[in-house]
C-alpha cells in the first residue's frame, strides 16, 4: 500500500464504522417512538371511555416492556453493535431522561397517595403539571440528541416539542387530551429514528 492508500483506508474505515454505529442506533428511536405513541393513545382511549385517570398507571409498564423489547432486539442482532462516543452520549441522554421521567412520575403518584391534608388544590397542581414536566424533559433530551448527532432537524424538533408542548398543555387546559402531547412526542421520536437511519446510510 502507498501512504495515500493507507490514509484513504483509515479515513474510509473510520467514517463507515462511525456512520454504521449511528445508523444502527436509529432503531432504538423507532422502538421507543412506537411505544410512546401506542401507550399515549391507549391511556387516552381508556381514560376517555371510563373517565378514570387511574389508567395513567399503565405508563409504568412502558419502560419495562421497552427494556425487554430492546434486549430482545439486541439479542437477535447477528453482530453485536459496538459503542462509540456518539452512541454512548445519545444512549446516556435517553437513559437519563427515562430515569428522571419515571422518578418524577413516581414522586407524583406517591405525593397524591400519601398527602392526607385537605389540600386538593396542591394535589391537582402537582399531578397536573406532570405531563408538562415530562414533555419538557423529553424536548431537552431530543434537542441534546440533535446536538450530539449534529442534526438541525432533531435539535429544532426537541425545542418545538419541549417548549411548544408546555405552551400547548397550558393553553388547552388539563384533561385527558394531554395524552395526545405524548402521542406527538412519540411521533417525533419515531421520525427521529427514520432521520438517523436515512441520514447515515
Amino acid at each position: 500500500m502507498t501512504p495515500q492508500e493507507s490514509l484513504r483506508l483509515i479515513t474510509e474505515t473510520m467514517n463507515n464504522n462511525r456512520l454504521d454505529i449511528i445508523r444502527r442506533s436509529g432503531k432504538h428511536f423507532l422502538l421507543w417512538g412506537a411505544l410512546l405513541t401506542f401507550f399515549s393513545l391507549l391511556v387516552y382511549a381508556l381514560w376517555k371511555i371510563t373517565d378514570n385517570a387511574a389508567w395513567n398507571n399503565l405508563w409504568f409498564a412502558m419502560p419495562v416492556i421497552g427494556f425487554l423489547l430492546a434486549r430482545l432486539m439486541e439479542g437477535k442482532e447477528k453482530e453485536p453493535r459496538p459503542q462509540n462516543t456518539i452512541s454512548r452520549i445519545v444512549g446516556g441522554i435517553w437513559g437519563t431522561f427515562g430515569i428522571f421521567a419515571c422518578l418524577i412520575s413516581l414522586f407524583t403518584v406517591l405525593y397524591t397517595l400519601l398527602d392526607k391534608s385537605d389540600n386538593p388544590i396542591g394535589q391537582i397542581v402537582v399531578g397536573a403539571s406532570l405531563t408538562a414536566q415530562i414533555v419538557l424533559l423529553f424536548g431537552m433530551a431530543e434537542a441534546a440528541s440533535g446536538i450530539a448527532l449534529k442534526n438541525w432537524a432533531i435539535r429544532i424538533a426537541g425545542f418545538v416539542t419541549g417548549i411548544g408542548g408546555v405552551i400547548l398543555y397550558y393553553v388547552t387546559g388539563v384533561g385527558k387530551e394531554q395524552m395526545l402531547l405524548f402521542t406527538l412526542a412519540g411521533i417525533v421520536l419515531f421520525v427521529t429514528g427514520l432521520i438517523v437511519r436515512n441520514q447515515h446510510k
Binding site: 500500500m1 483506508l9 464504522n17 462511525r18 453482530e79 459496538p82 459503542q83 462509540n84
Partner: peptide, 18 residues
C-alpha cells in the same frame, strides 16, 4: 490489520463478527 485498528480506534470494543 490497518482496517481492524481503524475500527477499534473509534469504538470501546468490537465483536469478532462485527
Amino acid at each position: 490489520r490497518l482496517a481492524v485498528m481503524s475500527i477499534l480506534a473509534g469504538v470501546e470494543s468490537a465483536d469478532f463478527t462485527y
